[in-house]
Computed example of a mutant assay.
Amino acid sequence: MSGATITFILIFVSLGLFIWGRIPAVMVAIGVSLALFFTGILPANQALGGFGDLTVVLIASLFVIAAGLEASGVTTWAGQLLIKHAGDSRNRLMIYLLLMASLFCATISVNATVAALLPLCVVLAVRLKIPTSQLLLPMCFATHGATMLTLIGAPLNVIASQAAEGAVNRPIGFFEFAVAGVPMALGTIIIMLLTYKWLLPNTSGPSLPRDFSAHATTLIEQYRIEDGLHRLRVRSSSSLIGAASDAKSLEGVSDLSLVAVLDTKTGEPLQRPNLAEGDVLIVRGDAQAAGR
């Protein structure tokens, strides 16, 4: 079997695994590199060279900065400031959120911005009692529209700069992308403001992903979003004992959506597939429905 055939097979297998989603993407990526090495297509220095590539290190460091912004309370402060000035105006909230997303993207890249602002958007949706889709989708569009404001707005910008340096012995400047980036960012914001009322879906997920549910307690403490969130403890007589620890356990209560499930022993997000006595359900919805 030729090297080209093996490479195409690995591409389609990795694509299938990415779509399947059961194996972490990082494990799939490392597996492809190792497969290329063991099949003799790439030598060891090329198969593992990406770990020391400047572009990879830069992108990874930006994710660290994004985590630092959340851990240090910067996103909390920004969210509280946004809520304070936006008030009850949806249009004003949308403008502030899109501008914030664009600014973050220009400084910590598109992927790190989405990771940092995703909890904030969920908090705003809960506080203002609006569907999460009405904030998450505009935030994502605004960040992608602002990727060309600076050199670090997107990984492709850094790769293009390195390619330019190799071709003409001069990298692309930090703000050179802004010639096209500023009109694109402003145009994205204007289009979203003019069309979000009609084009965006009015939906909220029945539950949050397991890897995001760990933020539940942090969101409650830092953003003070107790309103609309309820803690329900599974009692010994509850019919929920043995039920699946996901949104299926609340299928009979249409007014509630599951935010997180906490383990009765550790207080951490539940890792078991089924509920047990003492587990705590954090739900969002009507207080009367939660009290039933």
Rank of each mutant, 00 (worst) to 15 (best):
I6K: 11
F8N: 07
L10C: 10
I19A: 13
I19P: 04
P24L: 04
L36Y: 06
F37P: 02
G40S: 07
A44W: 14
L48A: 12
G50D: 03
F63C: 02
G68T: 06
W77A: 13
W77I: 07
A78I: 15
L82I: 13
H85L: 14
D88Q: 15
L99I: 12
S102C: 09
S102F: 02
C105H: 02
V110F: 10
V110N: 15
T113I: 01
T113K: 01
P119V: 00
L128Y: 03
L128N: 08
P131M: 01
T132H: 02
L135Y: 03
L137I: 15
M139L: 10
A142L: 02
L151E: 05
A154N: 14
A154I: 08
A160I: 07
A178M: 14
A185T: 14
T188R: 08
I191G: 06
M192K: 02
L193M: 15
T195H: 03
N202H: 14
T203F: 05
S204I: 02
P206N: 08
S207P: 02
F212P: 00
A214R: 11
I220Y: 03
I220A: 04
G228M: 07
L229G: 04
G242D: 10
G252L: 13
L256A: 11
L256C: 12
L258N: 08
T264K: 11
T264S: 13
L270H: 10
P273Y: 03
P273S: 13
L275W: 01
E277T: 03
V280Q: 01
I282Y: 00
G285F: 00
A289W: 00
G291V: 01
G291E: 08
